[in-house]
Amino acid sequence: MKLLTHNFLSSRFLKNVTTGYPLKLTIEEKNVVEAEIDVNFLKNVMVKIDYAVLYEAAKSVGEDENLPSPNAIVDIDSLNEQQLKQLHRVLVCLDVVIGSLECPETGRIFPIRDGIPNLLVNEDEVS
């Protein structure tokens, strides 16, 4: 699972959960896949991303170096090459292989195995 996906995941589908965001990410094993940088995509996706959440997630993997500070409003055009590269690396290249996601409100844990988060729930757990 990429941090990009983590940034969009929410546990709102659970019963009695109002926002369910952000899911608490614990990483046991990660993998980096090299990929070509696509500034267009970054531009497109940065509009939707919750940057503070991304920054926190990256920090927990120790990849926050070179990332612009979460307090500043992130504008793609103002970033230097190194920052862009790191942003790309964190969003697209980095893959969580083993770990878990935790719902911030109920504490329900969703395991991540083989890079696939398991978000299966029982019928009585959903609203």
Partner: peptide, 11 residues
């Protein structure tokens, strides 16, 4: 990829 039953909603 996400392991998820479509019928229990999109996460």
């Amino acid at each position: 990829l996400v392991l998820r039953d479509l019928g229990s909603g999109m996460p």
